[in-house]
Design a protein around this nucleic acid. Sequence first.
DNA 1: CTGTTAGCGCTTTCAA
DNA 2: TTGAAAGCGCTAACAG
Lengths: 334, 334
Amino acid sequence: MGNMNIKKLAQELNLSPATVSRALRDNYQISPETKTKVLAMAKKLNYEPNPFASNLRNQKSKTIAVIIPEVANNFFSQAINGIEEIARMRDYHVLIYQTHEKSETEIAFTQRLISGRVDGILISISSETNDNEHLKEIIKNIPVVFFDRVYEDIDAVKITTDDYESTYNATCHLIACGCKKIGYLLALNNISTGKKRFDGYKNALKDNEIPYNSDLILTDSNNDEENYEHIKQLLHTQKPDGIISSVEEMALPCYYACKELDIRIPDDIKIISFSNLKTAPLLNPSLTTITQPAFEIGKEAASIMFKILDKKYFEPNQTHILKSTLIKRESTSF
Amino acid sequence: MGNMNIKKLAQELNLSPATVSRALRDNYQISPETKTKVLAMAKKLNYEPNPFASNLRNQKSKTIAVIIPEVANNFFSQAINGIEEIARMRDYHVLIYQTHEKSETEIAFTQRLISGRVDGILISISSETNDNEHLKEIIKNIPVVFFDRVYEDIDAVKITTDDYESTYNATCHLIACGCKKIGYLLALNNISTGKKRFDGYKNALKDNEIPYNSDLILTDSNNDEENYEHIKQLLHTQKPDGIISSVEEMALPCYYACKELDIRIPDDIKIISFSNLKTAPLLNPSLTTITQPAFEIGKEAASIMFKILDKKYFEPNQTHILKSTLIKRESTSF
DNA sequence: CTGTTAGCGCTTTCAA
DNA sequence: TTGAAAGCGCTAACAG
């Protein structure tokens, strides 16, 4: 029977399209009888309004975009879960874009979105990024909420966790456990998220009067094998008795390397990592983690986006900070 | 400067909107000089065509929908990764919908999509589902590709893995390792995916002349705590020497239960599970897994969708089967 | 309470 | 090679 549309539906009912439109949108001007008739016929004929026509007419899309580095990541997939949950409650649609950490891809996506395809953008920036002119531009036209990985120098709402405190506390914890030579696996060091985490580590050392030693710092090389070799080297040559890993992706090869080098965790070395790995307690031994409330961050970011869209949000540049949890595992006993 | 549109852009260039439109779409009728002028101005003014206007006009959306049970799942997040990769190459947009295993939600989503909001739908069905009239309906209007979790009785393209062979081989492997009493953690038993996996187990037993014992079968109860208690009970009362888990979500509590009950893996019991957990080799001991090529399934599903959209696909009801891998871990030695 | 009409921004005949 | 005009399906003014 081809595609249904409001005109055909109106004909079927001997009404004008306008009346049908109003009835479907539960407009107060329409008589109850007409409404029920229209609704019944719409259901019977399986009518769904064409969203592009409405979007074009209304200049809004009932859609939000989520730009993230990677879906297949324990943090981001949980965050999407939270975002989608809120969006569904509002009958909004969710578009997903992965940058794979490439600044170029991020720019291309944001550029495409200035067309009005979405009512708002939730973004967690790529680690490669440093130039953010594209976002400063787009922010003038579309509401943007940053989450987890944010630009410090952009005026916008930001949802993060307490990156600085997390590593500060974790480092202090290791020191309290007797560690004297704590290595740091550094990632995201181009962006504030990574810088804050690193600062937390450095300041914890300073406050505990442990000298900072750059030989104990290993920077992510964005190449799995290379990374693994570097980690092995660090463990072998420096023999740290503690490790703080700023991302899960570096903690895991560190685990492998310890196995290969016969370094016992936690006796020879204690490892704490940012991680949202659900099986952390099952690892051998358990991974002590700084766990971010990923799901809640997603929900919070989406909720605030809807407040903005509803014009019910009045603190345009506020940063909301949710707390991460340092999860110590019984089985690892630290 | 408000929102740019093709009319303003045309004015700026002293051309008609029609010409500008053609130039932007690289129409052969337009002179090269005009094209370069138009392109330059479009870039300068940050012009992006309004997608809703084009979609309305062209009756297509450059968007595909992905309907899945859950994003925060190792299999599905990797599959999305594959889908998004292919979509990006074609400048397509990807909408994500999570059913959370609820049939009702699945129906609501598909219903909303008959409006033409998307050019195609990739779906992995919810485990709760049994009625699929909604999909039979929608399939008449929009191309649908099923992946991983499919309806057997719907005529459509399907991408799956070799569910039957996977559990058949895994079970044979356990038997070859000396297991005589193999339990089965049953999930997805309403849908063909789960049924095939279960059949593989049962037939492997039969072919090895091991009697089927329903006391060794534990059905997923959709409640984490309840599940955990049931698993503990199974382990305690039946004392199986092997376990096949049809989903990762049941293998992990089984691991916990073994720890609690002091059952040694793999000495007392050997566990094999469907799983796309990247850290499986780091578990204590390593989890032997049936690992599905999640990323490749996503890519394959998306590729075939685009062939369909390009009218270059001519086997409407074909099922494509990708092979899973039984990954044995050295450290577990089985 | 309902109908007529115009227009959202784009593309595509048809005409020049 | 370019322009004028119509229309995709919907909704909001305006009119009755």
